[in-house]
Every structure is written in structure tokens, then in C-alpha cells.
Simulated scan of single mutants.
Amino acid sequence: MHALIVVSHPNPGSLTHAIAAQAAEGVRTSSREHSAEIVDLAAERFDPSFSTDDIAVHLRQAAPSPHILAEQARIDRADALVLVYPVYWWSMPALLKGWIDRVFSNGWAYDEGPDIVPAKKLNRLNVHLVAVGGADLRTYARHGYFGAMRTQIDHGIFGYCGARVVTSELFVPSEPPDTTHHLESAHTLGRTLFAARDREAA
């Protein structure tokens, strides 16, 4: 089994990157048959700008560029997609949102159009979301921020494409400050990512 871990943070020394690395390590230590690939969108300089070319792809007037096809192929090779990102303004960073905007295109992630029967095309894909927040849980609960994030991301994006969001985690600061628990939770997530399938195969 193969996990594709996509991380969106400009600082490779950030907690977000450390969490992604621990998740990958957890996958690799769970079984010699499991592998993990980390995609660092900032380091790869992915262009999140949705251009007129992307509009043409959405309208099914043009094929995706080779770069977008390569991103889609990465996902096609994966048995699980893990997104690790900091919360910016109660949502994901623009870089990650732009990656989704461009890569999860009409004709690949879903089908829609005037003469096309709407269809979800990512039904086989399991998704795991790890958001790293800067506010405490009471703030998220009081204003309904985490519920809003789950509505727009879990349901609005992945539900629309048919992908199954298996876990949707929110890591928030602790008092006193300590990141050990987050790193241990990320490792556990990776270690158990394919546990159900391993049991089925046993």
C-alpha cells in the first residue's frame, strides 16, 4: 500500500513538516509492504494560480498540462491521500487550495457538463486530513470554525469527488507548549493508515 502525503508550508522546519514526516515514518514502519511519498508543494514551487488554461480544462475544451497530469498520476498510484497543512484564516493555505483547484479537474476527479451525466470519479480514494491550528479548541468550537472547515473541505471538495474522508484531525497548541503529542499522533496515524486492509488480507 502506498500513501501520498501532501504538505503545504513554506518553512521546512515547521511543525507542519514535522507532522508530515512522522506520518510518513509511521506508514513505513507499519509494514515493509507499505510506502509513503511526501509532496512538498512549496519546495516543488507548485503554481496554484487557476489560469485560462485551467478554465479550458474545466469546460473540457482542452486536456490538462503534463504537469497536472503528473500530479494526478501521483494520486492514482496512491492508496491513501494525506493532506497536512496549517490553518490560514480558518481554512487551508492558498497553495494547497490551488493544488486542489488545478489537479482535481473535471474529467478526472468528477464528470460534469451540459451533455454529461454527473459522476464522482475518486470513489476508490481514502483521504486523511491533518490541519494544524494556532487557536485553541474552545475558539474553534465557539465560532463553529472546525465544523465549517469540515463542511467546505471534507464534504464540499472530497465528497463531491466521491473520495472518502476517513480521518479529519485538528491539532491545536497545548498548555504548556509541547508538540510531542502531535508528533506521536501523526506517527500513529501513519502506522494505522492501512491497518484495516492489512486485517482483511490476513
Results as ranks from 00 to 15, higher is better:
94 A>H: 05
12 P>H: 10
184 E>T: 14
23 A>M: 01
141 A>Q: 12
72 Q>L: 04
136 D>G: 15
121 K>G: 04
1 M>V: 13
162 G>H: 01
28 R>V: 01
149 M>I: 14
64 P>V: 02
178 D>V: 06
33 E>D: 15
116 I>D: 03
43 A>V: 02
100 I>C: 03
78 A>G: 06
118 P>K: 04
26 G>A: 07
157 I>L: 15
68 I>D: 04
61 Q>Y: 00
143 H>A: 13
180 T>G: 15
2 H>S: 15
128 H>M: 04
10 P>V: 12
29 T>N: 09
77 R>F: 02
106 N>D: 06
111 D>F: 05
72 Q>K: 09
164 R>G: 01
12 P>Q: 01
196 A>C: 08
58 H>P: 02
158 F>N: 02
40 D>Y: 05
64 P>T: 02
79 D>F: 01
50 F>I: 03
8 S>D: 05
153 I>V: 15
85 Y>P: 12
168 S>M: 09
11 N>G: 04
28 R>C: 05
142 R>F: 10
200 E>N: 13
61 Q>R: 07
186 A>G: 11
169 E>T: 14
59 L>P: 03
22 Q>Y: 11
114 P>C: 05
166 V>H: 06
70 A>F: 05
8 S>E: 01
7 V>P: 03
85 Y>I: 07
55 I>F: 09
191 R>Q: 14
15 L>I: 14
